[in-house]
Computed example of a mutant assay.
Amino acid sequence: MHAQRRGGAADRTYARLREDVLDGVLAPGAVLAELEQSARLGVSRTPVREAFARLVRDGLARPVGGRGLVVAPLDLADLEHLYDVREALEVKAARLAARSGAEFGGFVRRFARAPGLVAAGDLDRYYAVTAEFDAALDAAAANPWLVRALDDVRTHLVRIRRLARHDPGRLVAAASEHQLIAEAVDDGDADLAAHAVHVHLHRSRTHFRSRLSTREESA
């Protein structure tokens, strides 16, 4: 029973720290100290220590000589590496989804309405649609190893999106790009789906590269 309670505390502590890293509450480069985080979260140091180890395995924290652990930094090199892997995986996923016979007409219509969500400032619903779309593509691709790899990449891309902040113009354009991907998958056109993903990720990479460059120059 004691081991179960300890495991539950470690899981909750890890989930909270992971969320704080992804949301930017714990910023890139921030020092992670067991005592400080145990006091902040109201838990003992043991679950914090276990959570820190999991963050390191996730690539969200890294050891730094003489400073213990820090939240993993994010820079332009990280962006390029992540997008190289993301493109390879998502292009393949789009091809598999288009060949699966899955119906994506609902997403075509939802992305057509997405600019209205941006105009209304309802970004939570906008991002909910994109998250559902990603999940539907993953399910249609039906390759658990590919999905697992994509989950890891997307975890780090969440941090980039948070750091770059929202750009309404880019969100509207991205909705149109997602709509084209959905249309291609719904039509069963694997080549068009792959090309549409390539275009979307090229524009996304260019946008975030610009945002991160500006951020680094002003830091």
Rank of each mutant, 00 (worst) to 15 (best):
A102K: 02
V43T: 14
E90L: 08
L32Y: 06
V91H: 02
R86S: 02
V71I: 07
G68S: 00
L26Y: 07
E50G: 09
A93R: 04
V25S: 15
P47K: 12
L22D: 04
A94F: 00
L55Q: 08
V91C: 03
L79A: 00
L79P: 02
G101P: 11
R12Y: 10
G106N: 11
L69W: 04
S100Q: 08
R18F: 06
E50L: 15
G101D: 12
L69Q: 05
V56M: 09
D75F: 02
V108I: 06
P28T: 07
G66C: 03
V108R: 11
G65T: 13
L82Y: 01
S38F: 12
A102C: 05
L41V: 13
L82T: 03
R67K: 08
V21M: 02
A33Q: 15
R95D: 10
E34M: 12
A93T: 00
E34V: 14
G105W: 12
V108Q: 08
R57Y: 11
L89V: 04
L96E: 12
L74R: 03
G42Y: 09
P73S: 00
R110Q: 14
R99G: 11
A39T: 14
L89S: 03
S44F: 10
L79E: 00
R12Q: 15
A61Q: 01
S38Y: 12
A51Y: 03
P28F: 03
D84L: 06
G65D: 13
A102R: 05
V64A: 09
A88Y: 01
T13N: 13
R18G: 06
A39K: 14
Q37I: 09
